[in-house]
Write a protein that binds this DNA or RNA. Structure first.
Lengths: 340, 340
DNA sequence: GTGAAAGCGCTAACAC
DNA sequence: GTGTTAGCGCTTTCAC
């Protein structure tokens, strides 16, 4: 590997082109009022020296960066990974770069990661999955940079999310229409609280409207080696309750449930109907074939980035905004009428 | 949303504590030789003002950042997403933050994303998935910052990867041991060239050693709306060739193949054995249950980060290094003896 | 043990 | 149309 050459600076370019550094700066920033011939000379010098402006210096003097911090629970969860990808693309499209912080639910990592993002003077923070430690996180971020909560919620920042309650209603109605009488709601703790409550609320409303009983289960998330066992116990509880259909708060949990059912010889959808939430790519595979509520991922991500960019660029002022996108039920093969 | 308060600076802290800014700097950086009592006063002022050092300024003066650029093909591919997560964690553990650049195979996005990373003065670049446009990319990066190629390869940077050839041999031997005579290699274009060639080479060696014919297919990656159709055509080609087993260059491709087989009523493993490469989390689901070659993801990511950190910190000099980790075959249900 | 001063690479007034 | 200059917030000699 060759020795690392230093980067050329604006002064080097100025010298090479025989102008002052302000002129170079004007050319770089596309300020008009530079003689075409001068502009050309500067351009050539830039090319020649492979000059790339130093954003550290620019951002320092401008008192503002074009870096967005993104806090994610777990990139290993396909929904978050897919969202992360869309956020990155949307940000790049608006001239922002993205710094990810993948906290894996570790509170300490979350706070220190966030502090690091603040030290980098991130222009704004996108929370994709809710910070576990609300108080600490709020203390670090609020009042310093704008925050947007994407598919999660808080009252001190803008919120962009799907219409969780309506989505949950669609899912539950679908199961009722199929003839199910004993439908459970299955909460995956990885889903942020507010979203979870909304989805549960939608479920409860529809179930009660049809005079059915509401049953709510929670996935345990024990250490890895015990996980499979814990899951099997959960499924056992479901079946003991004579549940015939489950609406899971996310696809990830729904797919785990399918996995569990497969291992235990419980047939889906014959013995148990399963409906998820998110519509991750995986859900559409023939082998998974999961009925689910689709979240419009690219639209959500774009909206979140636009919102935070508007705050950063001073186009948006005032109290937190709340933007909600409609959700669609995608019927696939994991749901069917219960056996009679 | 409350007005955004400015960040306190080192001068604010100095004033508050009644010392000079150099003393504050000494305290922040843990330089010894500061009177305990002074140190305490400074600490209190920092706490009081919620002071966070500005890394832009620090990095500008130090002529070095703690930012790592990571170039990824597609975060929507679980293997890359999982690797990204491990890279982020490993980097955080060594005091680095990570900027992702998710190029989606778009050459222009790749080069401009990389230029942006360079403008941010990334201390090093991790290529997770090979840059499509080698020449351009090399021109932008080489000689400026160290590069490490993770599960891909180039001769102008350090390489960290699994032993692709040996892994491919394991997979192919497994199929031969099961009694297969007509085994195809299936190349997914998302797998970087060098890795692909290694895996193909391993496959070819074993097949030829057993005096069998080598057959290599390539997934087409046509526009989304035509993809399913194109895939079905591929599977048709496979079956026409009386292939009984397929070794795919990655899990993603293998899972697509399963999906395709399911839709067309081809039974796996009865009619067709499928072996993948990577061992993404999904591959272990009961419904997927894919026999595959496991890549040690956390170890690969950690090694890549350590390598680049060593370069950045000047602990590692000289020509590009090549580190290879051993791979393991994970036998699951997608492979079995061919029908007689 | 502490402070003064120079300067990292850039932008943005303001002069000329 | 172009150059001069004063910082942005820090680190890092070098005096004291």
């Amino acid at each position: 590997m060759t020795a690392l050459s230093k980067h050329a600076t604006i002064v080097d370019v100025a010298r090479e082109a025989g102008v002052s550094k302000s002129t170079v700066s004007n050319v770089i920033r596309g300020v008009k009022g530079v003689a075409p011939e001068t502009r050309l000379r500067v351009r050539e010098a830039i090319e020649q020296l492979r000059y790339r402006p130093n954003l550290l210096a620019r951002h320092l003097v401008q008192q503002r960066t074009t870096t967005l911090g993104v806090v994610i629970g777990d990139l290993g969860n396909p929904f978050y990974a897919e969202m992360a990808k869309h956020i990155e693309r949307a940000a790049a499209g608006r001239g922002y770069r993205v710094m990810f912080c993948n906290t894996l639910g570790d509170q300490e990592a979350e706070v220190s990661g966030l502090e690091s993002l603040m030290e980098h003077r991130a222009a704004g923070i996108v929370f994709l999955s809710h910070p576990t430690d609300l108080v600490q996180v709020r203390r670090v971020v609020e009042g310093h940079v704008p925050a947007v909560f994407l598919t999660c919620a808080a009252d001190w920042g803008d919120v962009v999310s799907g219409d969780d309650e309506a989505g949950a209603e669609l899912a539950t109605e679908h199961l009722i229409d199929l003839g199910h009488k004993r439908i459970a709601y299955f909460a995956d703790p990885i889903v942020e609280d507010a979203a979870d409550r909304q989805r549960e609320a939608g479920y409860r409303r529809v179930v009660q409207r049809s005079s059915l009983a509401a049953t709510v289960f929670h996935w345990d998330r024990p250490p890895d080696e015990l996980q499979q066992e814990a899951r099997d116990r959960q499924l056992d509880r479901i079946l003991r309750n004579r549940i015939t259909a489950v609406f899971s708060s996310n696809d990830y949990g729904a797919i785990e449930l399918l996995d569990c059912a497969d291992r235990l010889g419980v047939r889906v959808p014959e013995d148990l109907s399963v409906v998820g939430f998110d519509d991750v790519v995986m859900a559409g595979l023939a082998r998974i074939n999961l009925t689910t509520v689709r979240q419009p991922q690219p639209e959500l991500a774009t909206l979140a980035v636009e919102t935070i960019a508007a705050r950063v660029e001073g186009e948006l002022h005032g109290p937190p905004q709340r933007k909600t996108l409609g959700l669609k039920l995608i019927v696939r093969g994991s749901s069917a009428a219960p056996r009679t």
